[in-house]
């Protein structure tokens, strides 16, 4: 590995360093970029350490939304009482990342910027309807997460821009969420398939649902037909099974060393069904 290193401790300065050199990359927990640098798939000229930049830190409620700073680690997310109440599915997702050591370093910002199709932090955020707050040479802007994710390891970040944090509306009293992951083992596993959901209820029926499938397309995708089907329906074994079938159809998995396409598509549907089962059980 060979690169220069800066630790500006200042957001504007970080942005300046990143825009000045197109081969420079931001560094937070390092659990993705340093692996890439070791393997030679990433060759940054300089790493700009984002540690100690106050705008990127913190988990707080503001203006009716929950803000999670890009520099918050997965461990920090898992330990947050605010998130335990407002968005437990995000904790469920981040709790599945790697291992305790990885969670102590890896950040939610890094998870987003790395944009792996199999990321565990992304499906819950997508289900939550999160927006991504960005700061760059042209100032601040906000994108919906689905607009931010463009493809495998590709995001809508312009040169010099950094993710400042994510924000989403907390789960309301008539809402519930889930996150499930299928890996090759129970820790240190890259998802074969994952599923997240944010479901709003009106009485016993589903008012609206955001259901997200992970690791089955170039980015996490919405199981749109499952979502459409569930609107207005109560969660029964039959509706849950049908939603699962439709979600399997929404899946666009590929084959790789971890699994086959057919298995992944089918499991996408199964995970959605099991997630909905869990919601139904907790509401009864």
């Amino acid at each position: 590995m060979r690169f220069d290193y800066s630790r500006p401790r200042d957001l504007a300065k970080a942005v300046e360093l990143l825009s000045r050199d197109p081969e420079a990359r931001p560094l937070a927990g390092g659990t993705d970029i340093l692996v890439g640098a070791q393997e030679g798939t990433a060759r940054p000229s300089r790493l700009v350490d984002l540690a100690g930049i106050p705008e990127l830190e913190g988990i707080r409620e503001e203006d009716g939304k929950i803000f999670v700073g890009a520099a918050v680690t997965h461990a920090g997310i898992c330990a947050s009482p605010l998130l335990a109440a407002a968005a437990p599915l995000l904790i469920e997702g981040c709790a599945e990342v790697g291992s305790p050591q990885i969670r102590n370093r890896g950040t939610i910002g890094g998870n987003l910027v790395n944009a792996s199709p199999a990321a565990d932090g992304i499906p819950p955020l997508l289900a939550l309807g999160a927006e991504v707050r960005i700061f760059g040479p042209a100032g601040a802007r906000t994108l919906l997460l689905e607009e931010f994710l463009l493809g495998v390891k590709k995001t809508a970040l312009e040169p010099g821009e950094v993710v400042v944090g994510v924000a989403f509306a907390p789960l309301g009293p008539d809402e519930a969420g889930f996150f499930l992951k299928l890996g090759q083992r129970r820790a240190l596993a890259i998802a074969k398939v994952s599923a997240a959901g944010r479901v709003a209820f009106a009485g016993a029926a589903v008012k609206s649902a955001r259901i997200v499938l992970g690791a089955v397309a170039v980015t996490a995708v919405r199981a749109a037909s499952a979502e459409a089907f569930l609107e207005g329906k109560e969660l029964t074994p039959e509706t849950i099974a049908e939603a699962g079938r439709l979600a399997a159809g929404d899946s666009r998995a590929i084959a790789d060393i971890r699994s086959t396409a057919a298995y992944r598509d089918e499991m996408a549907g199964l995970l959605v069904a099991r997630g909905l089962e869990r919601l139904a059980a907790s509401r009864s």
Partner: peptide, 27 residues
Amino acid sequence: CERGECGACTVHLDGAPVNSCLVLAAQ
């Protein structure tokens, strides 16, 4: 493994276990 996948390099950084193979000395 030098990829953060085996934990043999685990040390504490500010009291938390981390993979030292994925921490720069500069950090």
